[in-house]
Design a protein around this nucleic acid. Structure first.
Length: 443
DNA sequence: TGAAATGTTGGGGCG
DNA sequence: ACGCCCCAACATTTC
């Protein structure tokens, strides 16, 4: 059955506008590709690795194989889309069937429109419109074997791509936390559905509860399709438990929708009035944030979880982002860059949308006056302090009622052990409100 | 997917 | 017993 299939992965670091992956996601990519190659070998196939401009490389491989068809999953962002368009045109000129599929999204951005036919700028109506559409079709089962060609095209060696850290190996925490690859993704999904989905709605905001799916890096690398996730979740037929989780998949869809319709939002303010915002350049404060030494336990715990595991709980991402942009008044792009480099789930659309949402310059963004209080957020979402104890061990002996404000403890930790807050939150809040008032009102 | 300031209410202490 | 005040608890508004 079927004609030979040649699986190809192209590492494109040359097409202008395609951003080079950060260090943590390069680590993930290495292990993901290794896992994919192993799986393909078990099917009697191989993974061909090439690097270069994706459209040119694929054309070359297709010619070497005398391919009759080339298939891929659609991309939704500027330079990648242009690359696809060039490839499609070139292949068709040579009589090769070229087809993109939508396995990376539940709903394609152009299929979801407002009543007047335009794109959405607010999440709730966007997701409502998605839910009103037919459910995404179930994913097809994986083939049991892939027919091999008589002659395989050449492949790069994965090691030669040097995706793993050179010099000091900071990746041990990543390896302990994650299993990149399709099998790891499937296990993660099954575990989540069995053990955590039922309490997701109530426990998802508590970072110590381990109640989220942790599928984000697997989704970001295409190791699992959102359609597979959708299917596993809705088949539980427990709408109160699942609806909240589905809407988080919806935020991912919304991010792709925005990037498709409004262009790259990883650097450009969606609301142009923010181009005049008085961000402050403070290297010391930024460094304290990077290293998890701000003096606010929930912020520092999150930043250290990120550094150690390449991932941070969603609630804590909002808290650390609010702290950077509002308490420190540091440009959200500085935070976006750090996340891009350190997150194993780094995804251009999700990262840009999330940062702009918190900073207030994005679509459907938090209003400027919403400033998270890192103490109250800690007390509300980490009431026992377990998350802080895990990631900020020097505070582990503090009782729960002061662990989010160590300066109030009977015997506060010395400044060598744990820093005093680098800013006073109350003062920082009023400074931020002041700064935000300088913006011209939009619309 | 907030927080703080301000307003309202009702119970209890106390002159 | 009554009225006054205090303030916790809750609601509303404002940033």
């Amino acid at each position: 059955m079927g004609r030979p299939i040649v699986p190809v992965y192209v590492l494109d670091e040359q097409t202008v506008g395609i951003r080079r992956r950060g260090a943590a996601s390069r680590w993930w990519l290495h292990h993901s590709l290794a896992a994919l190659a192993t799986s393909l070998n078990a099917l009697g196939s191989r993974l061909v690795l090439r690097h270069g401009k994706a459209d040119q490389v694929i054309q070359a491989v297709a010619a070497e194989c005398d391919a009759s068809a080339v298939c891929w999953n659609n991309a939704y962002e500027g330079p990648s889309r242009e690359c696809e368009a060039r490839l499609k045109k070139a292949l068709q000129q040579h009589g090769v069937v070229a087809e993109g599929f939508k396995a990376n999204v539940l709903f394609e951005p152009q299929d979801v429109t407002t009543g007047s036919g335009g794109p959405f700028k607010v999440f709730t109506p966007f997701w409502k419109a998605c839910r009103a559409r037919p459910s995404p079709p179930a994913a097809l089962a994986a083939p049991e074997r892939l027919p091999a060609p008589v002659v395989w095209p050449d492949s790069d060696r994965l090691e030669d791509w040097r995706l793993l850290p050179i010099g000091p190996d900071w990746s041990r925490g990543l390896g302990a936390a994650w299993t990149p690859g399709e099998a790891g993704a499937a296990r993660r999904l099954a575990t989540f559905v069995d053990e955590a989905l039922g309490r997701y709605r109530d426990a998802r905001d508590r970072p110590a509860a381990q109640a989220t799916s942790r599928l984000s890096p697997h989704l970001a690398f295409g190791e699992i399709s959102p359609r597979q996730v959708w299917q596993a979740v809705v088949s539980r037929d427990d709408s109160t438990a699942t609806e909240k989780f589905l809407s988080e998949l919806g935020w991912r869809e919304f991010a792709y929708h925005l990037h498709f319709h409004f262009g790259n939002l990883t650097q450009r303010n969606f609301r142009p009035e923010f181009d005049a915002f008085p961000w402050i350049e403070t290297k010391e404060a930024l460094a304290a944030w990077h290293r998890g030494r701000t003096g606010y336990p929930i912020v520092d715990a999150g930043m250290r979880e990120l550094w150690t595991t390449g991932w941070m709980h969603n609630r804590v991402r909002m808290i650390v982002a609010s702290f950077l942009t509002k308490d420190l008044l540091i440009d959200w792009r500085c935070g976006e860059r750090w996340f891009w480099d350190t997150l194993v789930d780094a995804d251009a659309a999700n990262n840009g949308t999330g940062w702009q949402w918190v900073a207030g310059c994005g679509p459907d963004a938090a209003p400027y006056f919403r400033v998270f209080n890192p103490v109250l957020q800690g007390e509300k979402f980490d009431p026992d302090g377990d998350y802080v104890r895990r990631w900020v061990p020097e505070l582990a002996s503090l009782p729960a009622d002061v662990i989010h404000r160590p300066w109030s403890a009977k015997t506060p930790p010395s400044a060598e052990v744990y820093p005093s807050p680098i800013v006073d939150h109350a003062a920082a809040r009023s400074r931020a409100l002041q700064a935000f008032r300088t913006l011209k009102p939009s619309r």
